[in-house]
């Protein structure tokens, strides 16, 4: 029974749309996080003194600390953006796909 259900969902264009949009969104966010994180790690390895510069003249805060604090916040905000969209828009689409497949089943 469930295999037939899965087959119906798979052929539903809305399922294809869901998978494509959500996949693209998740990959984009992941790549942003990975590039920024490993970019920062490489900056630490290759340009430590640049990261040790103060953010402005007379400031005690260094560029490295400021960037890292920013990354902590950014990564969490990106997570919140993802959860908001996935739990709202994408889940609504998922429910539609399941409902349609169940309707056809009857």
């Amino acid at each position: 029974m469930s295999s037939a259900m899965y087959e119906r969902m798979r052929t539903n264009p809305k399922f294809q749309e869901l998978v494509a949009t959500r996949g693209r969104f998740a990959w984009t966010l992941s790549i942003v996080v990975l590039v920024l994180f490993y970019g920062f790690v490489l900056a630490v390895a290759y340009a430590p003194s640049t990261l040790g510069q103060p953010v402005s003249d007379g400031a005690m805060l260094t560029i490295g600390v400021a960037v890292e604090a920013f990354l902590f916040i950014l990564f969490w905000v990106l997570s919140a953006v993802y959860v908001r969209r996935a739990n709202g828009e994408f889940d609504a689409l998922t429910q539609e796909v399941i409902k349609q497949a169940q309707k056809e089943n009857k």
Partner: peptide, 21 residues
């Protein structure tokens, strides 16, 4: 100092990836 803070970012950065993927 800074190295300790850096270590913490490495400990944290896995979470968004776990969420997205």
């Amino acid at each position: 100092g800074f190295d300790g803070y850096l270590y913490m970012l490495a400990f944290f950065a896995g979470w968004p990836i776990i969420l997205f993927m």
